[in-house]
């Protein structure tokens, strides 16, 4: 184990996990080791069904690994902890609450020293930051898909989590909305420091948002390839079309292809 790994805010150490289903046992993760440094942002890509969501559930403490360990801030994860914020492909907003009340939901669970006025102010600030000012009192059904996803991001961040876990949050959006949300992500990252894990199927998204891209092998997944990206922080969409970016994309695409070919038959 490298010393650098110890400083990682998120650390996954030799994790293996097998699901038991009706049709037998399904090994999903095999000796997976990876780390994300504090305030780093790592994208995880890999073939469909290889176990990416399982990784996020392990980090969030929603699932216990069969073998190996998961660490957050130097503490082993044994159960869910409120230092985590999560957003999924499905924004899962609660239809009976206004957007503001949806965003404030985590504050009702996580104990905090903030007064109720301060909590509301915090939620409103976040909504403003993602461009949802004026929609606080609307119901989720009155918003577009992109706007709902923005609200979902606010909810994931409202309790100022150390760790933000994003499981394909932009996967269901159209290309333009998605690019908009990428910019929003960079804005959020500047205003609200967090350590992030992003699961995505979109390689462009991965290199636009992350500091590092990890390619997982086919199931059972392990780290197949790691690509550190030269740039941190905000970047412009034009940078996705430079020769360097294209080269990175090609390398990643090649790696995904290898990962898919290496998959166990019958999956």
């Amino acid at each position: 184990m490298t010393p650098a790994l110890h400083k990682d805010l998120i650390r996954i150490d030799g994790v293996s996990h097998t699901f038991t289903t009706e049709s037998g046992s399904l090994p999903v993760l095999d000796n997976l080791t990876l780390g994300v440094p504090e305030n780093g942002f790592t994208a995880i890509v890999g073939p469909s069904g290889c176990g990416k969501s399982t990784v996020t559930r392990l980090v969030a403490g929603l699932l216990k690994p069969d073998a190996g360990s998961v660490w957050l801030q130097g503490q082993e994860v044994t159960s869910p902890r409120s230092v985590v914020g999560m957003a999924f492909q499905n924004p899962v907003l609660l239809e009976w609450r206004s957007i503001l009340k949806n965003v404030m939901l985590p504050l009702e669970i996580v104990s905090s020293s903030l007064s109720s006025a301060a909590r509301e102010a915090r939620a409103r600030d976040l909504l403003k930051l993602v461009g949802l000012a004026g929609f606080e009192d609307k119901r989720p059904s009155e918003l577009s898909g992109g706007m709902r996803q923005r609200a979902s991001l606010c909810r994931a961040l409202v309790h100022q989590p150390e760790v933000l876990i994003l499981d394909e949050p932009f996967g269901a959006l159209d290309a333009f909305t998605r690019e908009d949300l990428w910019q929003t992500m960079h804005r959020l990252r500047e205003e609200e420091p967090f350590t992030g894990v992003l699961i995505t199927h979109d390689l462009r998204e991965a290199i636009f948002l992350a500091d590092e891209v990890i390619v997982l092998s086919g199931r059972p997944a392990t780290v197949q390839y790691t690509k550190a990206l030269p740039q941190r922080g905000p970047r412009s969409l034009d940078q996705l079309y430079t020769p360097e970016a294209t080269e990175t994309l090609n390398i990643l695409r090649e790696q995904i292809k290898i990962a898919r070919e290496g998959e166990e038959p019958g999956s």
Binding site: R57, A60, L62, P80, S82, V84, M86, N90, I109, V110
Partner: peptide, 17 residues
């Protein structure tokens, strides 16, 4: 949907909550 549980469970909310 499991995600609905997960958004609260990930924060350490109890089954009752």
């Amino acid at each position: 949907e499991p995600e609905y549980r997960d958004i609260l469970r990930a924060l350490g909310a109890s089954q009752m909550t």
